[in-house]
């Protein structure tokens, strides 16, 4: 852990992504970043966990298969992990894509194996988001929550507990608070 990397902590891409040099992004060709996304140190993104090739028609499209798709203004805090979910289907094990929309905050140390995380979602620290979870827009998941696999979390929910359950509603006035543009701007090499 050398404290001061000479070039600064973040690499800024053309589309405005700020990616920490100390993050681990595996299988980059299978990851889509919408831009203006922050990836902090020790974040792991598993683009290598692809759908098993047998389920994709051979010699089909030329484009790369997508394992992780991320929208704009997402912030992945230190040490969180994004893993495409996997399961047995018709006798074979396969991974399925993990989709994350815009303005999604993921707290430090959380593990995400969802199928879909909607826009304006805030996930606290040290959460486990179970396989194939579908989280709709405007959802807050409090720190330490273990969200059970296959759950659908409707919009405007506050989720907590082990297993996670809906414990409250997002108030009308909280909607603006999910916007991550300002937080995105505050992250950078000179802070």
């Amino acid at each position: 852990m050398s404290r001061k990397p000479a070039k600064g902590e973040y690499i800024e891409t053309d589309t405005g992504n700020k990616v920490s040099r100390r993050s681990q992004i595996i299988g980059t060709t299978n990851i889509i970043l919408g831009g203006k996304t922050v990836i902090q140190a020790e974040v792991i993104i598993r683009g290598d966990l692809l759908r098993t090739s047998s389920s994709v028609p051979d010699g089909g499209k030329q484009s790369n298969p997508v394992a992780v798709a991320i929208g704009r203004y997402c912030i992945f805090s230190r040490g969180c992990e994004l893993r495409p979910p996997g399961k047995m289907y018709k006798g074979t094990f396969s991974h399925y894509p993990l989709k994350i929309a815009d303005h999604v905050f993921i707290g430090p140390g959380s593990i995400i194996e969802a199928a879909l995380v909607g826009s304006h979602v805030s996930i606290g620290a040290n959460c486990v988001i179970g396989k194939f979870t579908i989280i709709k827009d405007y959802v807050r998941i409090l720190g330490g929550t273990v969200v059970p696999p296959n759950i659908v979390i409707p919009s405007f929910s506050v989720v907590a507990g082990r297993p996670g359950r809906v414990v409250g509603e997002i108030a009308e006035g909280e909607v603006e608070g999910f916007d991550l543009r300002e937080l995105y701007r505050s992250v950078g090499n000179n802070t």
Partner: peptide
Amino acid sequence: CPICIAPLS
């Protein structure tokens, strides 16, 4: 689930 309230599939 009647045991833990997680969703059943």
